[in-house]
Amino acid sequence: MSLEIDSVSKWFGAFAALDKVSLVGAEGEFLALLGPSGSGKTTLLRILAGLERPDAGVVRFNGEDLSGTSARDRRAGFVFQHYALFRHMTVAKNIAFGLEVRRGAEKLPKKEIAARVERLLALVQLDTLGGRYPAQLSGGQRQRVALARALAIEPRMLLLDEPFGALDAKVRRELRRWLRGLHAEMGLTTIFVTHDQEEALDLADRVVVMNNGRIEQVGAPADVYGRPANAFVYDFMGGANRLPCDVRGGVVTFGGFAASTGDHAPGPDRAALAYARAHDIRVAPEGQPGLPATVLAVFPAGGQPRVECRLGDGQVVEAAVRTGDPWPALGQRIALQPERVRVFE
């Protein structure tokens, strides 16, 4: 139990940016804060770094209350969303900054600082660029300088605000892989903020889904994706179809087709909306049990062959075609059989 966030609240005027947020991060854990823009991710990260003061609640590190510790003394490696590199310093100077401002007994000799900067430059694969200014770097390079600068102070935790937000897709994927390797190597408790669910699921040990200043769900990527706690999380993970269903005696049916809800109880008897992902909806011939639908488009290419179809109520739904199942034709009438669904209260 290294990092503990205990009922932290933050208000901006009458607006609650964080509403009693609690979270425990284990030593060396790689956590993703995932949520839509404005959900309070940056605010939480800034509170951890000591850049913002919570209006209520405490943050503890290894049991020590950090409330009285200023940003300066927290030793939280913070990587800003837009990097916040010192524009008038070279890359090497940027990285050395945290070491050069040390006082008293912590002061390091110049040689030692230079050696450490060299090591960090090598670590972030920018060996030859120490003399450049931030303006002369690409986005991905700036990101890595910001990271090296944060690592230079030997932080107790690493906080990254949308580390890949401003980068193009290819660079983003490369950096993602590189960051995971780096984390594995250093074992530093790391929290990174993202609004990209794929990134969070790919990278993190655990994903923290936030919305409106609250935590909606915390869990391993497979859990959050496979067993979303509520409609918001399901929606946010992507690919959600909303299908009308009947709940009776704990069984969810679609036009006579019974779906599995796994370990999630669908609640009392009623007509409800079920959530299902495309690959959990099977395309069956017309006349079989299931939701009647008309095929609008077929997408045979790509990782997952899909069809787009319209339900009787006009709603458009995506479903998968299993290997071996026949491809439906455009305009053909079919039955949709949602095999695994979730029904939220």
Partner: peptide, 19 residues
């Protein structure tokens, strides 16, 4: 989302800052 207990801060003339 139900509104939680309103502990909204009184309006301060200076927004707190770590600087």
């Amino acid at each position: 989302m139900t509104a939680s207990a309103p502990i909204a801060q009184p309006k301060r003339w200076l927004k707190p800052s770590v600087l």
